[in-house]
Design a protein around this nucleic acid. Structure first.
Lengths: 163, 163
DNA sequence: AATAGTAACTATGATAATCATAGTGACAAG
DNA sequence: CTTGTCACTATGATTATCATAGTTACTATT
């Protein structure tokens, strides 16, 4: 391709987000980070992306201030990647994507009788379904408020990928 | 590129969404459709994308059931594109992207004194800020509940692009 | 009647992003 | 001293994207 059009100078907020988020590799890497996976190899394995792409996108996300690179040991040098506050604030976007897919992207019964991933509101124990607000206690759901329980199908897929 | 990895067979809901939404052209086209622009040329002009890309992505979105092609006259044949229910349900995703960008993607004062695009809750008249729930009346915000008022900077950019 | 205009595209060729695979450097464990 | 792990970088084939130009089918104007 020729250099893709730069959207970072638009005044439209969706355009600015799309500049970063309009990329499947970025979205998959963010998913892994939200799942708590921090190491390069774990991210590469679970996303199915090549190391080159993972490396390039992590550099981009670091430059954008979404991700921080952290040395967790010196000898040999090893790093992990963590979401910054700016990165954690992308939770709403990923969660909205999850909700939409649960509602529209599965055949009936494809993942058994429930959703692909069930989310429980830690504060009150309610199953939040595909809502942005807890259907039980009415609280707005934020990063850290939820506990995910993958369906049997999803769990099998994840263990098949290794980490 | 080689054929990009297919994510439609993953059981992860974020992966399934990313299959469609992890593409800047798709996000920009959806933005235009949510703004109420329905004609091919208007979408192409406002996104800055070439007609080929717009054509390919609209076909994809039609195949995915996100968009419907509608003939609004027969001679000469003219079409417009509309969001289906499945497409309108992507509102939460685009709105979350907008909220995130308003919070993180602008320098102070870049769009004047307010956000790039102000949203007013039609039901109660409150400025909703970057919240998913109306700060005034507590209602969950959905597609159609909001009225957008672009900042001076954004309005200037839009009129510059034509439609 | 001929020209210009509009809408919705398709065709072409150059460029560059992506994938698959293999390789590297630094160290640890057996 | 060979094997293994982690975090990458290097290479080459493939193909998506962009810019530009062209097409089809009409309507409106001169």
């Amino acid at each position: 391709m020729p250099k893709r059009a730069d959207l970072s100078d638009t005044f439209c907020p969706v355009g600015r987000s799309a500049e970063i988020l309009g990329d499947r590799a970025v979205l998959l890497i963010l998913r892994e980070l939200f799942f708590g996976r921090r190491r390069f190899e774990a991210i590469a394995a679970n996303t199915g992306l090549g190391p080159q792409l993972v490396s390039a996108r992590l550099k981009l996300l670091e430059k954008e201030g979404v991700v921080e690179r952290h040395a967790y040991q010196e000898r040999p040098p090893r790093h992990e990647y963590r979401l910054t506050a700016k990165g954690k604030d992308l939770f709403d976007v990923l969660y909205a994507m999850r909700n939409w897919a649960e509602r529209w992207a599965y055949e009936a019964g494809e993942t058994g009788s429930g959703p692909a991933m069930r989310y429980i509101h830690r504060a009150c124990g309610a199953d939040v379904g595909t809502s942005t607000v807890c259907p039980e206690c009415g609280e707005i759901l934020r990063y850290g408020d939820l506990k995910g329980e993958p369906s049997v199908a999803l769990k099998a897929e994840q263990t098949a990928k290794g980490t």
